[in-house]
Amino acid sequence: MERRSEIFDAIRAKPGITFRELARELGVGIGDLQYHLWKLEKEGRIFSRRAGRRRYIFPRGLEEDAQRLLIAISTDTRRRILLLLMEGPMGQKELAETLGLSQPTVSYHMSELVRLGIVKAERSGKNVVYTLSYDPETVVRLIREYRPSLWERLADGLIDLLTSVGDEK
Rank of each mutant, 00 (worst) to 15 (best):
Q103R: 14
E64N: 06
L40N: 00
E97F: 08
R78D: 13
R60A: 12
T163D: 07
G125N: 06
A23G: 06
G157E: 15
R53G: 15
M86Q: 13
L161S: 05
L161H: 06
S111N: 12
L83V: 15
M1V: 11
W151Y: 09
G29R: 05
L158T: 15
E152H: 12
Y130W: 10
T75Q: 10
Q67N: 10
L113E: 00
N127M: 09
D135Y: 08
L84I: 13
A23L: 03
F58R: 02
I17A: 03
E97C: 03
Y146Q: 04
L99W: 07
T163N: 05
L161E: 02
L84Q: 02
P104Q: 00
A66C: 01
W151E: 08
S149R: 07
V114I: 03
L113A: 00
K126M: 11
H36N: 01
T163P: 04
L99I: 03
K169I: 15
G61A: 01
V106C: 01
L26G: 03
L162K: 09
V114M: 00
A155N: 12
P59D: 10
S149F: 09
G100I: 02
P89T: 02
L82Q: 04
L22H: 02
L33N: 07
R53V: 15
G157L: 04
Q34A: 13
T105F: 10
G27M: 05
W151Q: 05
M90R: 11
R53H: 15
L132V: 01
T75C: 07
I81M: 09
R123S: 04
L162Q: 07
F58H: 04
S149L: 07
L150M: 11
I118K: 00
E87I: 15
L162G: 04
K14H: 14
K126C: 00
S107Y: 14
L82H: 03
K42T: 14
S124F: 15
L83I: 13
L158R: 13
L26A: 01
D32T: 15
I73F: 08
L116E: 14
K169F: 12
L62P: 06
F19M: 11
V165M: 13
S102A: 03
V119T: 00
L161M: 09
G61D: 08
R68A: 15
L85I: 12
A51N: 07
V139F: 11
P89F: 00
R79K: 13
V28P: 00
E137L: 15
E21L: 00
R68S: 14
Y35F: 10
G125F: 08
Y130N: 01
V139Y: 10
R24P: 04
R55N: 01
W151C: 04
P148S: 05
T138P: 08
K42R: 09
D135L: 01
I118H: 00
T105M: 07
D65A: 13
N127G: 08
E122A: 01
L62E: 08
L69T: 06
K14Q: 14
R20K: 13
A23C: 02
T105A: 07
I73G: 09
F19P: 11
L26N: 02
R55S: 12
Q34N: 11
R78F: 10
W38A: 10
R55Q: 05
E112Y: 05
P148I: 07
P59W: 07
R123L: 06
S124T: 11
S107L: 03
I71P: 08
A66F: 02
L33P: 04
L113Y: 02
I143W: 09
I71R: 06
R50Q: 06
G166P: 12
G117L: 01
G29Q: 05
